[in-house]
Design a protein around this nucleic acid. Structure first.
Lengths: 233, 233
DNA sequence: CCCTATTTGTTCGTATGTATC
DNA sequence: TGATACATACGAACAAATAGG
């Protein structure tokens, strides 16, 4: 057991024992180095470990702070996000992060059957349940096909409604690619999760009733940590 | 942009440009420090960054290596792991970690429609492609229904074959739950991945041609999964 | 608004420990 | 066993962001 690991554990114990509670400022690196009688670098290595674990957060010029605990988030299981949430008696909300027309990237164009660079509606959203951020999503629609999308979406606030009013009464998910990765700083911030909690990333293609590509989307959500596995020896 | 960030990006570019391919050994820290004309600590900071991102892996006494890329795995209604691998001209292999009869846990019993504690066949495996570990899986079958499973599986080495010979010519995946989490030490060891690379966890229920629950399984892989039917139901 | 003390971030230097080959 | 290479630790200095007077 190295010194920095000892220090990291010691600080972690202090936090789980509520000697230091979320939001609290940790002693400065200098003070910690005196307390543990080690070099400041050794303290920094320990703090770096705690940062990776999402337990503390450091800011230049301010100090290191105990992070707020993360609430386990539920993985969204249905494309109809709002209905699903309301069924459970919870309050869904969607925030628009970006909504614009932009040239399509190669991957998006391929999936939607467009020529690369052909304009697409780009919509980026953050979703909440009971005011807790639960997911981020990026949506792409053909601008040629839905020229009035932006205004309609702003007025209606829902994708399904916008598509219905654009003459697409129904659509289904044709394909989903799923992967997992750790969040970027921005994503961790937007979703209010520590950096060590994996994101589940879904890339999907929705098609309309005629089987034509309709929407290419990417959604990201933090997932619950599972602990119910029999140990592997 | 700090020096170590520059170096990290530079090395990452080298890797995506295939100048360094998966499995390759990076230059030693000393060599890199000479090349970039910085202190070895600065190189170490960059390598630490690349390790966090899962791009390289370092081992004391050996060196730093470019990690293997994760190959997308395809999830289907009739999952046939070996066929899929062979289609791509790769060599699949399966290792038995455990194979035994044990009382069913509550969750397993519920899914399989058994009484809690009713005996189940428990099979734990590790799968390889081209001798690289790619996944871990746990399988549960009713022991009452398949009393000779253990001997048959040992003789045949394949679940599908064992089931066929047990009078179950066909089965399909009824449901899949997907989540992500960081690996335990054991899992990281068995899968040969760093501890900060998320695992994709699939819990699934397979049913036979009559719609009866057949197998409850949990698989874990550090790879992308492609889903070509409505993903989460 | 500026100045300054505080605090974390980066970089160098040096030394020793420890795992691998 | 020795050489190599990564891991840990200490010391020093300066940069950069923050907070408070």
């Amino acid at each position: 057991m190295s010194l920095w690991q000892d220090i990291s554990r010691s600080l972690e114990r202090r936090i789980v024992a509520r000697e230091l509670t979320p939001g609290d400022k940790l002693p400065t690196e200098f003070e910690l180095s005196r307390e543990f009688m080690v070099n400041r670098h050794t303290v920094r290595r320990a703090l770096s470990d705690l940062q990776e674990k999402g337990i503390v957060e450091s800011t230049q010029g301010r100090g290191s702070f105990v992070r707020r605990p993360s609430t386990p988030l539920r993985l969204q299981r249905r494309p109809r996000f709002s209905d699903h949430a309301r069924e459970q008696g919870r309050t869904p909300r969607t925030e628009i992060l970006r909504l614009a027309v932009r040239p399509s990237e190669a991957k998006v164009a391929t999936q939607l059957g467009l020529r690369p660079g052909e304009p697409v509606i780009y919509l980026e959203r953050r979703r909440f349940i009971d005011d807790e951020p639960t997911g981020l999503s990026q949506h792409h629609f053909s601008h040629t096909r839905f020229p009035g999308f932006i205004e309609m979406y702003r007025a209606r606030g829902a994708i399904t409604q916008t598509l219905t009013d654009s003459g697409v009464p129904d659509y289904t998910r044709a394909r989903t690619w799923i992967s997992a990765r750790l969040p970027t700083n921005d994503e961790a911030e937007l979703l209010q999760v520590p950096r060590h909690v994996p994101l589940l990333v879904q890339r999907y293609l929705n098609i309309d009733g005629m089987g034509r590509p309709l929407e290419y989307g990417i959604s990201r959500a933090a997932t619950e940590v599972e602990v119910d596995f029999p140990a592997l020896s």
